[in-house]
Write a protein that binds this DNA or RNA. Structure first.
Lengths: 175, 175
DNA sequence: GCCATCATGTAATTAGTTACATGATTAG
DNA sequence: CTAATCATGTAACTAATTACATGATGGC
């Protein structure tokens, strides 16, 4: 279960509330994992029971700020270094890209253009995160989300452009 | 629900049994979606009830080969062209890559090397699929799984290599 | 004859989404 | 004063995994 370690890891970067965690899943972890608040709050309760996180601050609007405990930090280290990663992935976009070749050239072209627009928007979003993202308490400028994300975005863009060329030449008049 | 359309799409490429579908999820759709046979068989039954797939052949070992019906093909086209893609992704590997910067340089270095080995194995696997994969009944050499997969693999490899350099220089003796 | 693989199913459990529900604070 | 956002929770449902279960066929 990655949810547990994603929550633990986000809190290890800096303490935050369940509400903030929910936003981080859409920012830092946007292309890696997703969780709604309805899953986050119960998970925080379980992590607290296990002694892996603790409430370090209670603020306005009955907000509770959580931090990772020493046991939590050790569990995170253990998970990262000693457990075998699960390599399965889930991406509806990936399924669509695989299947779009079943479409006739006109439909495929339309889909390719929509996907291109998505990649442009994604790249813009990543560059925006670059500024919004909280300065991390670690030495290295570690931002796989942004740095690697933009590079992957670029190769996908190139690939889509090639497919668009193919689709256009196939449906071009005069052949 | 992408499972439904992934099954529909795989069958639209060519008719096959539930057992073969399960293998295709690990080959063609390896980095896009995953499904076990315990999920595939009930889904095939539902798709049959809906008239989107049909049994076209019954063979040895009480095997049933399914094909997409005309209604199934239309549903697939509708889904690909007219529905809004869900852009959330799930990748434990992505979570790990994001969190590995929390580790001290020695641990991080070990993780980076394991991930590098994974990428090498993945690239090898993709090249193997290239030959194993069934010739598709479509005109274009459409293999996002292999073509795009190898390119993404390459940029990830570069990125990992850079992180390894950083981790090494940080823990290098003499500074 | 026996082992690997093909082949299909169901049951129990866990994970995740959607919907329901409530209330506090702050900026305009 | 009121709308947006912060903030937390539960309930009902759907999706997915793991475990249980069985049997046929083909190659050696």
């Amino acid at each position: 279960m990655s949810l547990r370690h994603a929550v633990l890891g986000l809190l290890a970067r800096r303490p935050m509330t369940g509400y903030e965690l929910a936003r981080q899943f859409d920012l830092s972890l946007a292309n890696a994992w997703h969780a709604r608040h309805s899953q986050i709050y119960p998970e925080l309760a379980k992590l607290e029971d296990l002694g892996l996180v603790e409430v370090v601050e209670q603020g306005a609007r009955r907000s509770r700020t959580f931090d990772v405990t020493e046991a939590g930090r050790e569990e995170l280290r253990r998970w990262l270094t000693e457990t075998e990663p699960v390599r399965t992935q889930r991406s509806e976009t990936g399924v669509r890209w695989f299947l779009m070749f079943l479409l006739d050239p006109a439909d495929r072209r339309a889909v390719l253009e929509r996907e291109m627009a998505f990649l442009d928007a994604q790249a813009e979003g990543l560059r925006a995160i670059d500024e919004r993202i909280d300065a991390a308490p670690q030495p290295q400028p570690f931002r796989p989300t942004v740095d690697l994300g933009l590079r992957v975005n670029a190769v996908m863009r190139d690939w889509l452009a090639e497919q668009l060329d193919d689709a256009s030449s196939t449906e071009a008049p005069g052949r």
